[in-house]
């Protein structure tokens, strides 16, 4: 934007050009300064820790946890002490990569189930009477009012072998002549809880998107010959894609790295990559290898987020937004 200077309408006032240049420069500087706080934030809390991890991933573990010194002096000779061992270990057995893929699978499945469950709910809230909307949204975020771990312990009670759910289900399986099932310590329990914890993160962005839709477009579509299904599939759904991408990122990333839920509900079968990373840092005291696993996870997450952002942006421009 160019400022109109006094006297700018009279042709070529001698001071006009230099002053305008100054203003443009100041404006550019202001725009750059505006980017400073988020840049600084990213640097401090994302780039710097990641670089520290990268540094750590090439070092040896310390004897009692932590890291061994990255250099040593022997006969007044200074030597660096770095290694590729930690990275090679990732590929030595299929355990770690397998676990990574399994975790990706869990996170994807969680995202998918959350989308399927959140969509009808978000649509219902967005189309409900304005008076009830705030109340319904409040109900969606209500679980946040109690502690995350407490809610997982609640699921332990629900899934426990003495719980009503398991006993009830096993009455059914007995009647059908199938072996009794155990809900606790299984991937089913982990995914159920992952979905439960992350569902609001899908509902809220989806609602924010759907709430903005112009209902007159649906009238127009119906007027032009679309039935109810076509109205949804051709008008509502394509316009809601940016909301789905936003929700998917918010669900996918935390469920990929989570360790508390598989720790408490997963047993040995439901273990995820987050558990192994935690194990490296806490129980095994192998910080370098833990760093390797963390970096791989961060890398994959970043790639997927970039992909989703790109998809979301294309859908966004299609929306004309």
């Amino acid at each position: 934007m160019r400022y109109r200077l006094p006297g700018a309408s009279t042709p070529a006032t001698w001071f006009h050009k230099p002053v305008q240049t100054l203003i443009n420069r100041a404006e550019r500087l202001r725009n750059n300064l505006m980017a400073l706080p988020p840049g600084l934030y990213l640097l401090l809390f994302f780039a710097a820790p990641s670089l520290m991890m990268l540094f750590a991933s090439f070092r040896y573990p310390g004897e009692y946890g932590g890291l061994a010194p990255w250099y040593y002096v022997e006969d007044e000779q200074f030597s660096l002490d770095f290694t590729l061992e930690n990275w090679l270990r990732l590929f030595e057995s299929s355990i770690y990569l397998g676990l990574l893929f399994k975790s990706l699978g869990y996170a994807l499945l969680t995202t998918l189930i959350c989308t399927l469950m959140a969509y009808p709910l978000a649509l219902m809230i967005a189309r409900s009477n304005k008076r009830f909307r705030d109340l319904l949204l409040l109900l969606v975020i209500l679980p946040f009012w109690s502690n995350f771990l407490v809610r997982i312990y609640a699921w332990m009670i629900i899934f426990s072998p003495q719980g009503a759910l398991t006993i009830g289900l096993n009455h059914v399986t007995a009647a059908l002549g199938i072996e009794p099932i155990s809900l606790m310590f299984s991937s089913t329990a982990v995914i159920t809880c992952l979905v439960y914890v992350h569902l609001p993160f899908m509902i809220l962005p989806l609602y924010a998107n759907l709430e903005k839709h112009d209902s007159r477009l649906l009238d127009a579509a119906q007027d032009l010959g679309a039935n109810r299904f076509q109205c949804f599939w051709l008008i509502t759904w394509p316009q809601s894609l940016p909301g789905i991408y936003a929700g998917a990122i918010l669900v996918f990333i935390p469920s990929l790295g989570i360790f508390a839920i598989p720790d408490l509900l997963g047993g040995t079968n439901g273990i995820m990559i987050g558990n192994v990373i935690k194990q490296q840092f806490v129980e095994s005291r192998d910080w370098p290898f833990g760093s390797v696993l963390s970096l791989v996870l961060t890398g994959i997450t970043l790639l997927l987020v970039l992909l989703a952002a790109k998809l979301g942006r294309t859908a966004g421009t299609d929306n004309g937004k």
């Binding site: 007159r216 009238d219 007027d223």
Partner: peptide, 20 residues
């Protein structure tokens, strides 16, 4: 007849063009 079955089309005040 529901709206979609009527041989009647409407031009809306807001145009109601599909933005996507």
């Amino acid at each position: 007849l529901p709206p979609e079955k009527r041989p009647v089309h409407t031009v809306f005040q807001s145009y109601a063009l599909f933005p996507h």
